Amino acid sequence: MKKKLILGSILSAAMLVTSACGGGGSDEITIGAQTYTDPKIIAHMVEALVEEQTDHEVKIIKDISASPQIISAMEQGEIQIATLYSGEVYNNHFGKDEVEFTTDPQKTLEQAQKLFNEKYDFTWFDSLGFQNKYTIAIKRDFAEKNNITKMSDLAPFADQLRLGTDSTWLERPNDGYRAFSKHYGFEFKDPKGMEVQLMYTGVENNELDVVTAYSVDPQIIQLDLKMLEDDKAFFPPFSASLVARNDMLEEYPDVKKIIESLTDTIDEETMTKLIYEVDINKRDEKEVALEYLKEQGLLK
Rank of each mutant, 00 (worst) to 15 (best):
E144K: 14
Q219L: 09
G176D: 08
E98P: 05
Y120L: 00
P39N: 09
A143L: 11
D209W: 05
D175M: 10
G77R: 01
I258W: 05
I148T: 11
L223H: 10
D254C: 09
S152Y: 13
D254I: 07
Q53E: 15
F142K: 10
F94A: 06
T102K: 07
K62R: 14
G185T: 11
L249M: 06
A155L: 14
M151G: 02
I79G: 01
L7Q: 14
V216L: 07
M151S: 09
G87S: 11
A82I: 01
L115I: 08
E57D: 15
L223A: 06
I10D: 13
H44D: 06
N91P: 00
I71H: 01
P68W: 05
T102M: 06
P236F: 04
F186D: 09
D175H: 10
K282V: 07
Q111I: 05
I220R: 03
Y120V: 00
F94D: 04
T30H: 07
K192R: 12
S167R: 06
Y85A: 03
N92W: 08
K119V: 01
S127F: 04
E51M: 14
E100D: 12
D267H: 01
K114M: 07
A14I: 12
D121K: 00
V203K: 05
A82S: 12
A82M: 03
D231Q: 07
G129R: 02
L115Q: 06
L16S: 09
Y177F: 13
K286Q: 13
L7H: 11
E287S: 10
A14M: 09
V50Y: 05
G95F: 03
T270R: 06
F157T: 10
V288W: 00
Y36M: 08
D166M: 09
E229V: 14
L128C: 06
T108K: 03
T108Q: 03
E260T: 07
F186S: 08
E204R: 14
P156A: 11
N147F: 11
A155D: 10
F180E: 05
A43E: 04
E285A: 04
L290P: 01
M194E: 09
S152I: 13
V216C: 03
K59G: 06
E28S: 10
T103A: 13
P68R: 05
T123G: 01
F180Q: 02
M194Y: 03
D284T: 03
N205M: 12
K282C: 04
Y252F: 15
N91Y: 06
V17E: 14
L161G: 04
I280P: 02
K3G: 12
L242V: 11
T135I: 13
I29Q: 04
D121P: 00
K59R: 15
D38K: 00
N117R: 10
A20E: 09
S67E: 12
L293P: 02
Q80H: 02
M151A: 12
I31Q: 03
E251K: 14
A158W: 13
Q106L: 15
L228P: 05
T165F: 01
K189N: 11
L290K: 08
K273P: 00
K150Y: 08
E207Q: 15
L84G: 00
E260L: 14
T54A: 07
E28D: 11
E28I: 14
I259N: 00
Q53I: 03
Q219T: 08
P253M: 07
I136P: 02
A158M: 12
V278N: 00
